[in-house]
Design a protein around this nucleic acid. Structure first.
Length: 773
DNA sequence: AATCGGAAGGTTTTT
DNA sequence: CCTTCCGATT
């Protein structure tokens, strides 16, 4: 049987299917057989996937037989919510929806023992991996400059996502030629040692989650069969970002029924650097000659100006699947261009622009997103926002889970769950300081290596390895082991929150940071508390899902299974609701915001200096720009600075080539810095005439008929003075504390009785004078 | 063994 | 610029 027949259990499905356009509908109801949906930005990609799941359920397909894979937890969660909204709380919950990594990690917890992994295996994040690689490079007495950890990690990751183990890596002449040419012929040995250490620690890195799943399916046909039977209907989101390992796993899983539906947009492929391969999309036709192809081209997200800009940009790429994204929305407002003299001024101007737009259109903070190419750019932006008292939330960057104190505590948890987790052991054996120093640890590591044992196994019985430890040190080690064992014993009866907070105190971690008595120490304690709160929430959620049955609470082990695959973007608390979003463009994929500001549009930054040497890299940068533009629903602002501090050095920068790939008539007149209007005007024409010389430009239009043009509101600021009592439409009565700026940028700081101090741009605030103070 | 200070090195992008 | 690592000092 090639295609599983749908059970007949007719329900009225028309009511929710009405909400789809023709193409979306066709893609949704094509339930059987291979399907590829090429979905332009904002064309309802997620909608198709969620409605498809709902449709399958309504046709009587068992929820347990559906698998939906995404790339980010955020996307998975969103899909889940939307499915539950469509089909109600019951059945929808049983659909397997999650990221590749989380779904595969589950499979490996169940069946990984066939590959020699216990179900409580640890997951090493990239920090752990790199630390281990550095350790190995140093153990092998190689030059750590030649064998830079991130470079080696990159090579190993690339090998794993191409399903190449250390032996295959060693025996592959192409790979070896590359390594020899780059003067790094020992990578193959580092790879082998690295894998041995991971195995010894009962640990997998991110790439192993995919690689091992592949090995499991390839080596154990009965396991593959089991999951083929289970996952009769497979859906994959963001298919353009799959790598070879993911491609092959999906292909195997779907081999039986061929009920596979992939959704993607080649124009939004931005992870080639990580091994993602667009040809997975193009090759699908070869794998499934009878594949049904659907194109979603109507954009429901953005104004025509934004759609046009995106389309114009992408035409500069040679490699693409032809499609025409269109919208029936109006032109909307034009694109604003901000030109700042420096990175700091860019921060100020961006903050000012947000402030203006907020005041002008009565918008909440969360209507805005600021997107950048690299995390390092957030700093100057943050400063600008802080000065204007605009609340913001940064996603990514130094992630919460990567903070020292959090990693320390999590390492305790990891060691409790999996004693052999060497990275965790290494990290906390002397945190807080308990007199077990480098020398001792060094000895234990050597013994562990020689005997193929983990640090824990050595530490449990140091004498049998002939380690010349003095009795004091031996005592300290056995105390540590005893402590961890006591945690393990308690862990059997306690829920996640109880044991976690017990460990946080008993280990001495909290006390250690409290004793620092510095602001950093205080914030570390707060972070630990935040983690514990998160665990509490996790524990209590279990009670909810068990219909209030208090006896079933989630364990620490269950928490740890999830946490390794979580990122910062996955923790959204209520207080983050009304804040401006700051994130990298990569992190913004799949999201949308009414107002989007893309900053740092400068040569060598965006496009990145590392990606301008080859056409394919440059095209990926351009797709990244495409993604950035298409996040915007109603208004887009592009910004660049003429100078920027780059690792402490002041450097001059040129506007990005991408800026001129958008036709001039889509741009608005520039934001004025308020310093020198004539200079700004001159600079503006400069930026279009000197730096934008590669294409003939049409004359700029003035922004007369732009609805949100600032001139639309009446300036009433002529007579506002310090000390005056004034009234604001929404803030009520207040007193003017100070005034700054000139002309259209004149601002006042006003203390309102009801809401406290506010900074107002007088041209929008429409203050009424009620007294002269 | 712990602490402090200086040097060096690092910026893509993420599960 | 900021973080991290290493070595010298106590």
């Amino acid at each position: 049987m090639k295609h599983v027949l749908l059970h007949r259990k007719e329900k009225t499905v028309s009511n929710f299917l009405d909400q789809l356009n023709k193409e979306q509908y066709d893609a949704v109801v094509q339930a059987e057989g291979p399907v590829m949906v090429i979905a332009g930005a904002g064309s309802g990609k997620t909608r198709v996937l969620t409605y498809r799941i709902a449709y399958l359920l309504s046709k009587g397909v068992d929820a347990f037989n559906i698998l939906a894979l995404t790339f980010t937890n955020k996307a998975a969660r969103e899909m889940k919510e939307r499915v539950l909204k469509l089909v109600g709380d019951g059945e929808g919950r049983n659909v397997w929806m999650g990221t590749f990594h989380s779904i595969f990690s589950k499979i490996l917890r169940i069946d990984g023992h066939l590959l020699g992994y216990p179900s409580n295996y640890s997951i090493y994040d990239s920090t752990d991996s790199k630390r281990l690689i550095r350790q190995i490079v140093s153990d092998m007495q190689l030059d750590s400059k030649v064998y830079a950890q991130s470079f080696v990690a990159g090579r190993i990751s690339m090998a794993k996502s191409s399903l190449m183990n250390a032996d295959q890596y060693t025996n592959n002449p192409d790979v070896q030629t590359v390594d020899e040419a780059s003067g790094k012929p020992m990578i193959k040995d580092i790879y082998r040692a690295y894998q041995a250490r991971l195995k010894k620690a009962d640990a997998m890195d991110f790439d192993d989650l995919l690689f091992n799943t592949y090995l499991l399916f390839a080596g154990f046909p009965e396991i593959l069969y089991k999951y083929q039977q289970k996952f009769q209907y497979i859906m994959v989101d963001e298919y353009q970002d799959t790598n070879y390992a993911q491609y092959l796993i999906i292909k195997r899983l779907a081999a039986n029924t061929e009920n596979i539906c992939v959704v993607g947009d080649d124009a939004q492929s931005i992870y080639a650097f990580r091994g993602a391969n667009i040809s997975n999309m193009l090759n699908l036709k070869k794998d499934y000659p009878d594949i049904k192809l659907f194109k979603l081209e109507q954009n429901y997200r953005s104004t025509n100006t934004i759609v046009q800009a995106a389309n114009q940009v992408i035409t500069f790429n040679k490699e693409q699947i032809k499609k025409t994204v269109w919208t029936d929305k109006g032109a909307g407002t034009r694109i604003d261009l901000i030109k700042a003299s420096s990175d700091n001024e860019e921060g100020n101007l961006v903050a000012a622009a947000i402030f203006d737009q907020k005041m002008n259109n009565q918008l909440p903070n969360n209507a805005f997103a600021i997107l950048y190419r690299t995390n390092a750019q957030s700093r100057s932006i943050e400063e600008g926002l802080r000065k204007k008292n605009i609340p913001y939330r940064i996603y990514g960057g130094l992630s919460f889970y990567n903070r020292q104190e959090i990693k320390d505590l999590l390492s305790y948890f990891r060691l409790v769950i999996n004693n052999n987790d060497d990275e965790a052991f290494h990290r906390i054996i002397n945190v807080p300081a308990r007199g077990i120093g480098k020398t001792t640890l060094e000895k234990m590591m050597v013994a562990g290596d020689e005997n193929g044992l983990s640090l824990w196994q050595v530490a449990e019985d140091p004498n049998s390895f002939g380690l010349a430890l003095n009795s004091g040190t031996a005592r300290k080690i056995s105390d540590f082991i005893t402590m961890i064992k006591s945690f393990m014993a308690l862990n059997k009866s306690k829920d996640a929150y109880e044991i976690a907070s017990y460990i946080a105190t008993t280990s001495g971690l909290v006390k250690m940071h409290k004793d620092e008595e510095t602001p950093e120490g205080i914030s570390r304690v707060e972070n630990i508390e935040e983690l514990l709160n998160g665990i509490k929430e996790f524990t209590e959620k279990a009670v909810e899902t068990n219909e209030g049955d208090l006896s079933i609470k989630k364990s620490l082990g269950e928490f740890m299974q999830d946490v390794a695959l979580l990122t910062d973007a996955d923790t959204d608390s209520d207080e983050d609701k009304d804040k401006v979003t700051l994130m990298t463009i990569h992190a913004s994929k799949g999201l949308e915001f009414p107002h989007v500001i893309v900053v740092g549009l400068e040569e060598n930054l965006f496009p990145s200096i590392q990606s301008i040497s080859t056409r394919s890299e440059l095209e990926e940068e351009r797709r990244l720009f495409y993604v950035a533009i298409t996040r915007a629903m109603s208004h887009l602002t592009l910004s660049h600075a003429e100078s920027r501090y780059r690792w402490g050095n002041f450097t001059f920068t040129e506007p990005s080539r991408f800026l001129e790939e958008i036709n001039a008539e889509l741009y608005n007149k520039p934001k004025e810095s308020g310093l020198n209007k004539q200079a700004v005007k001159r600079n503006f024409s400069d930026s279009f005439n000197t730096s934008f010389t590669k294409r003939p430009l049409k004359p700029m239009h003035r922004a007369e008929n732009t609805p949100s043009a600032p001139s639309a509101s009446q300036p009433t600021d002529g007579n506002i003075q310090v000390g005056m009592e004034v009234e604001h439409v929404s803030f009520g009565l207040g007193k003017v504390i100070s005034i700054e700026g000139e002309g259209p940028n004149k601002k006042a700081t006003v203390f309102f009785h009801a809401v406290g101090q506010k900074n107002l741009l007088l041209r929008f605030a429409k203050l009424m004078v009620v007294g002269n103070g």
